[in-house]
Amino acid sequence: MRNAEIGIRDVQMELWIWRHLGIRLPGDWEMLQYSLKMESGRCAFADRYGFRFEMTWRRVDGPPDFDRMLSDYQAKLTEDGMENGHRITNAGIDGLKGTMNGDTITRFGRYAAGESCLVELVFPWPDGRDKELEREVLESFQEVPAYADGCRRWRAFGMDAKVPARLTLEGCRAEPALTEWSFVDKHHRTVLRCARRGMVKEWMNESVHSWLEREVRPDARPPAHWRHEQRGGHAVDRVEGRALPQGWLRRKRHLQSEAWICQGDGRLYSWIAENAADMPSEPLRCCGEG
C-alpha cells in the first residue's frame, strides 16, 4: 500500500541491523538488495511499488569534512543529471535534495565513528517527500554496539541473530520462504548457520525433532543429547553432540543446534553451530525486538 493511502503513521516501524548499523523503517519495506562486505556496500529497501530507501557505507580513515564533501557531491550529482539540487537539513543531519529522472531524491550523510564508516542514507520519493517519515528514519539511525559478552547483533529478514564477534557473515541466501545466514571465523573452523523457513504446513510432514535430526545428522557415537523445552512460548528442540566424521582425518566436530516453529509467523527457525564453544545461549531469536 502506498503511504498516502494508509497514512504512514499507521505502519509499525521495524528495526533492521546490518553491518552493525541499525535503522527503523516502515514494516512494509523489505530489504531486496544487500551486500556482505564490511568495507563498502549497500542495502536497498522497497515497498511493493518501488525502492524507498538505500543505505550505503564505506570505511574511511576518519571523519570527513561534511561541508566540503556535500559541495563536491552536489557538483557531481548535477553533472550526472540531478536538477534543482540544493542543501537541506532534517533531524540535524545535512543532506542534499534534487530531482533525478522526475523523482525527488533526498540524501543524507552520517559518520559512524565506532565503525569508522561513512554512511549515506538515500530516500527516493515517488509520491513526494514525506519530511516527517524522513525525520523518523534519520533519527533512528544508529551504530549498534556489541553486547556485553562481545557478540554482535544482526537483524533482518525476520531473523534476529546474536553472533560472536570473531565470526563474519560469509553468506546470505534470501529466497521466497527461505532465508539463510552463515557466519564463519577466519579459518572457517567455526560455523554458525541461521535459517528461517516459511510455508511450513506445505512441506513439513514430520515433527520438528525429526526434521532437526535429518538436518543436523549427529553421529551416534557418542550419542547426541536431545532436549525439548518451552522458551518464550515456543517449543524448542535442541541437540548437542558430534557431527559425522569429515575429511581424511575423520574429525568429528562439536555441534549444537536448535529448531522451533514460531507461533507468531508460523515459520520454522533453526540454527546450527559447529566447533563453537563460545556460542551464546540463544544465538537466534524470532519474534520481538529483545
Binding site: A46, E54, D103, R107, W125
Partner: peptide, 17 residues
C-alpha cells in the same frame, strides 16, 4: 559518498499491473 543508483519505481511494476 558514492552516487546511489536507487530508482524509485520498481522494475517489477509492469508485471504487477
Amino acid at each position: 559518498m558514492r552516487n546511489a543508483q536507487c530508482q524509485a519505481k520498481g522494475p517489477w511494476m509492469e508485471m504487477l499491473r
